[in-house]
């Protein structure tokens, strides 16, 4: 699945601002999720001196430090928002790592990066990182399980790390802001694009990963089922090429339009100057899309 990734480097040191794909390492980054046992909890922090006494009563040597004491049996306080939930257990010597899945725009707003007249708030989406056996990592690269994104090797990450998109969890933006220094690495632009495609495929069954698989299925069907032949693969690839360009128009040309509009609306940019090259790009790509789509349709039609 990394045909388009190139040689690298695939990672960079984190920049000042937090962006999509930044990888964090911090003890609190647990993939918390609910089950039907989940319940709101009351309780709070018990001071160190009382913790010692509690330990004595429990017959346990508790450390002389403040401890959290929570239970669904205690009255939940709306402000505290504590709930009993589930999480994956890691070996004691392993610190949880997680990759930011929220997009950079939402992240900038939540963390008030380059923003004014706002306060830090909301939640950001993270996927926990796991470590798998090398064979399994290779298999994930080959088979494209949309729920699991294998991360290329880097000395700052354990070998054979996998972003578990199927186990995403939310983190309060205030705590992400507090732990900006806990980032260990950022993704290169090509690797971030790979993650984006994987996430789109997992979350919405859309984008290059998803239509890549579906056009392969088309090739299989055109071949009468089973392993697709080369000619059928070419036919299906022609469809995928059309969708590549359509996606490019959406993710590049229209994002450029969006940036220019914001420039005009918020920063006094000149619409008359900014618009023509954007429109030219769109026209050019639409014409090419039209040609490619017609060609793909013709090929398919001939085959049918």
């Amino acid at each position: 699945m990394f045909e388009d990734l190139g040689e690298g480097p695939h990672y960079a040191d984190p920049a000042t601002d937090v962006v999509f794909g930044d990888i964090f390492e911090a003890p609190f980054l647990r993939d918390v999720y609910v089950r039907d046992s989940t319940a709101l909890m009351g309780g709070g922090t018990l001071r160190a001196n009382l913790a010692l006494r509690l330990g004595k009563w429990m017959g346990e040597q508790l450390p002389e430090e403040d401890i959290g004491l929570y239970s669904p049996a205690l009255t939940p306080k709306p402000g505290a928002r504590f709930a009993l939930a589930q999480a994956t257990f890691l070996p004691a010597d392993e610190t949880p790592r997680a990759i930011l899945i929220s997009d950079s725009c939402l992240t900038a707003t939540a963390l008030v990066q380059g923003r004014t007249k706002r306060s830090v708030g909301g939640r950001l989406l993270f996927a926990p990182l796991s470590v798998v056996e090398p064979e399994q990592w290779d298999m994930l690269v080959r088979s494209e399980d949309f729920a699991r994104f294998p991360l290329p090797v880097d000395e700052r990450l354990p070998e054979c790390s996998v972003a578990e998109l199927g186990s995403c969890f939310m983190v309060d933006a205030r705590d992400v802001k507090e732990h900006v220094h806990n980032r260990i690495v950022s993704l290169s632009a090509p690797l971030a694009e790979e993650l984006e495609m994987h996430w789109s495929a997992y979350a919405a069954r859309l984008g290059p990963r998803a239509y890549g698989r579906n056009t392969l299925k088309l090739a299989s069907l055109l071949s009468g089922g089973g392993k697709p032949g080369d000619d059928e693969q070419d036919l299906a690839d022609a469809v995928a090429d059309v969708l590549d360009l359509a996606r490019f128009i959406e993710a590049q040309d229209l994002e450029d339009v969006s940036a220019a509009e914001e420039d005009v609306r918020l920063s006094g940019g000149d619409a008359a100057q900014l618009t023509p090259p954007l429109v030219e790009n769109i026209i050019e790509h639409l014409r090419e899309l039209s040609d490619q789509a017609a060609a793909a349709a013709d090929c398919l039609s001939a085959r049918a």
Binding site: V19, Q113, E193, E196, P208, D244, E255, A259, D263
Partner: peptide
Amino acid sequence: RRRRWRGASTMTRVPA
């Protein structure tokens, strides 16, 4: 299969 159209993203742009 290598994609001819690459480098576009909807998740990495930070609007003004």
